[in-house]
Design a protein around this nucleic acid. Sequence first.
DNA 1: TCCGGGATTGTCT
DNA 2: GACAATCCCGGAC
Length: 198
Amino acid sequence: MPHSQRASLSKSFYHQPTIDLAQALLGCILVKETTEGVTSGVIVETEAYLGATDRAAHGFKNRRTKRTEIMFGEPGHAYTHLMHTHCLINVVSGEINQPESVLIRALEPYEGIDLMLKRRPVNKLQNLTSGPGKLTKAMGIDMNDYGHSFLYPPLFITEGNKKPPHIATGTRIGIDNSGEAKDYPLRFWVAGNKFVSR
DNA sequence: TCCGGGATTGTCT
DNA sequence: GACAATCCCGGAC
């Protein structure tokens, strides 16, 4: 059975602490269904953003705006936002009124690779979804997905097949202007995987 | 209304 | 390694 037909992860999965969730998501499958077809990929890289106390997070000091609103709600929803010309996707975590999230930074392509290549032509498969802006374009994820629940199609997450991966840890990418927060070890990836962003 | 900046990527040197 | 592309968001005025 293709992963796109498997059941999504349960609601309780998203209620674990943000750092635990960031690691638990590694090896799971992100699926997006559109009229063009189904695409999916194994999550191989994530970053945790700890909300009120994390200067690098959009929810720092509980800053609540139209953009960050979804993070103050229930975990398990999609927080999409624009960065330069790209759309980035996060999994909302933390309980109500805790603006925390997990950024999905890289995928290993799984289903619908032809469709992903059509949306985002690249020479090497390794470049297809190995970055937060790359994977959203390849899968057709955009601001229309803001606030969508990962429990249901057309955008959802299923359990992976493989055993729990070996997880490597490091500092987050692209937040050099965030004071001491730039040194927090909140980036997680599948050790040795070719599709990690860097 | 204006202005500065950003959780990126691709291209050029 | 450096830098431009490109555009929405949020704060200031």
